[in-house]
Nucleic acid binder design. Structure first.
Lengths: 143, 143
DNA sequence: ATGTATGCAAAACATTTGCACCTGG
DNA sequence: CCAGGTGCAAATGTTTTGCATACAT
């Protein structure tokens, strides 16, 4: 019984083949931030027969179970990332789509401060920086 | 010739009735953050005959002209807000949906700093705080 | 065995687009 | 007048759902 099987059971989910495959994929993928479609195609490429609807259902269950975080970097589609319980924010390259993670404790502190000033009970927050990553930036040394 | 007519012309847009109505609505609305559907319904309620497709087209044109900013607070639908060229971030109440605006120069500065550290050319950013606003918080003094 | 999960196809949304008609300057 | 704008309906892309079948325990 694999570690993934345990993780699923602890999350209260039956260890079915699609769920195992999706969890493994999220754990092993080089790119941590995947769309449902991306997960789906990766599984097909790996020879797994799975339905796109199942991918959506499983990712949503994973989210509810706290295994995964859902992001909306643009307004078009959602990105899913394994939730390792290490909070971080994102920096998204508008050219190649690369997503880098970062944490800045000072910003985190200021956010709590701002919320307090407004008598706002903070439960969550999101912060994303958009622009050009180091690589794409080079390719455009003609702006 | 109204001020709105001028604003449209300066933005290079013909002053048509739908565009005037939408611009006025955005300027006068109590709630500054509206969905396309919201704009559409407000116009219908006001007796204006306009198509939803036109609302989308006009809002997109306004965005390109810099008159309006588009936000994706959740991943479901876009919110539009008049762009007064005063950058700010948002605090969204998860209970009543209220959106408050705020600015914190120190956070802004740190964002630029983080981007620089990663060799990232910053073009835009988004930051949203989610939680309970002062009012909704009171209603729940039983948590 | 049996309640749950899956796959497929159809539905549901938000948003965009093609096209014939209308309108502002 | 006539390029550009609008309304409608149909298309799109993403995500959800209904339902009959397949599977984990």
């Amino acid at each position: 019984m694999s570690r993934e099987t345990d993780e699923l059971k602890q999350a209260g989910l039956k260890a079915t083949r699609p769920r195992l495959m999706i969890l493994q994929l999220l754990e092993d993928a080089e790119e941590r931030h995947l769309t449902a479609e991306g997960v789906y195609r990766s599984l097909l490429d790996a020879g797994e027969e799975v339905g796109l609807a199942t991918v959506y259902r499983v990712l949503t269950q994973f989210e509810q179970a706290g295994l995964v975080k859902r992001h909306h970097f643009d307004g078009e589609r959602a990105f899913f990332e394994l939730d390792e319980n290490k909070h971080h924010d994102h920096m998204v390259c508008m050219r190649c789509g690369k997503v880098e993670e970062f944490v800045n404790d000072e910003i985190e502190r200021l956010q709590r401060e701002v919320a307090a000033e407004h008598d706002f009970k903070l439960t969550d927050h999101r912060m994303e920086l958009y622009g050009l990553c180091a690589n794409c930036r080079e390719d455009r040394e003609n702006d």
